[in-house]
Amino acid sequence: MTEAQGAIEELLPRVTADRPDIYETLLGALAHGEVWMLLWHGRPGDPDAQYGSVEVAGHGYAPAVTSPAELAASGWPRDHEVIGGRDIAAALYPDHWGLWLNPHTPGGGLGVPWADLRRIAGGLDRLPAGPLVITEPTAPAEPFYRRLADEARRTPVLRSLRRGWVRPAVGSAYLVIGLEVDDPGEAAESVRRMMARAVEAVPDGLAVATVAMADAYDPVALWLRARARPFYSAPTAS
């Protein structure tokens, strides 16, 4: 058993709601390990192969086990597929499917929601640890907001700016700026330069991040679209 596999099996029974640090370590091990996906139809590599499914609280999960020993213990009578944790995360999250580990064990195993699979696929160090608490920002940063709006007026691809305060389960809270642009691909460099100029006005000690409003999977972008009114909107053409 590899070090990552050993870590997955050692950490799984230790995950509790009040220990997000252990859960975060488990996600890191899963990113570097493998899982044994339980196939409901077909064989590994078949174009019509289909993973099993579990529905919990209205959300779909694909069941998996974490080692050959757990596969034997599960008594699964059909075929299975061994796949890297990062690869299965990238395959499942776009369809809002999570991963349910060792459902045969006492207590029913552990579910990894699709939002955390997205973090595994995209990089745990790049995306905040959930569950996230997102609210309106209260930190005094008016000079920064004014600078952002001034820079936005000089950046034609930018359509609007929103803001929120994000408190991740692990790590420090930060101010997030939601960026709505005309063409995310074409706008990336001009928006990066705009933010580089604007951050000169960020108050000392205030952490700032950005999120693309076009990201249909980012929970921060989803919250901003639903709850935050733009503090800057580009003038509409008359």
Results as ranks from 00 to 15, higher is better:
residue 215 D to E: 09
residue 33 G to K: 06
residue 47 P to A: 05
residue 67 S to C: 01
residue 91 A to N: 05
residue 192 R to E: 12
residue 58 G to T: 02
residue 226 A to R: 10
residue 226 A to F: 02
residue 195 M to H: 13
residue 96 H to D: 13
residue 222 L to W: 08
residue 164 G to W: 08
residue 74 S to P: 05
residue 113 P to N: 13
residue 127 L to Q: 11
residue 153 R to V: 13
residue 128 P to N: 05
residue 177 I to R: 09
residue 46 D to F: 04
residue 150 D to E: 14
residue 77 P to W: 14
residue 55 E to Y: 06
residue 109 G to Y: 06
residue 168 P to S: 06
residue 193 R to Y: 10
residue 136 E to K: 08
residue 168 P to W: 07
residue 142 E to A: 15
residue 151 E to D: 15
residue 203 P to I: 06
residue 88 I to H: 07
residue 228 A to M: 00
residue 227 R to V: 06
residue 62 A to Y: 09
residue 46 D to P: 07
residue 160 S to H: 06
residue 230 P to M: 12
residue 205 G to E: 04
residue 186 E to I: 01
residue 39 L to D: 10
residue 173 A to R: 00
residue 112 V to Q: 03
residue 135 T to W: 08
residue 84 G to T: 06
residue 11 L to T: 06
residue 21 D to A: 15
residue 198 A to I: 03
residue 106 P to Q: 01
residue 7 A to D: 07
residue 115 A to Q: 13
residue 68 P to M: 03
residue 57 A to V: 11
residue 79 D to N: 05
residue 181 V to L: 09
residue 97 W to M: 15
residue 34 E to W: 01
residue 117 L to H: 01
residue 72 A to R: 13
residue 63 P to K: 06
residue 17 A to W: 11
residue 154 R to F: 08
residue 40 W to P: 00
residue 119 R to Y: 01
residue 147 R to H: 09
residue 166 V to L: 00
residue 75 G to Y: 10
residue 65 V to C: 07
residue 161 L to C: 01
residue 2 T to V: 10
residue 40 W to V: 11
residue 210 T to V: 01
residue 4 A to I: 00
residue 23 Y to A: 05
residue 38 L to G: 11
residue 24 E to A: 14
residue 237 A to D: 15
residue 238 S to T: 14
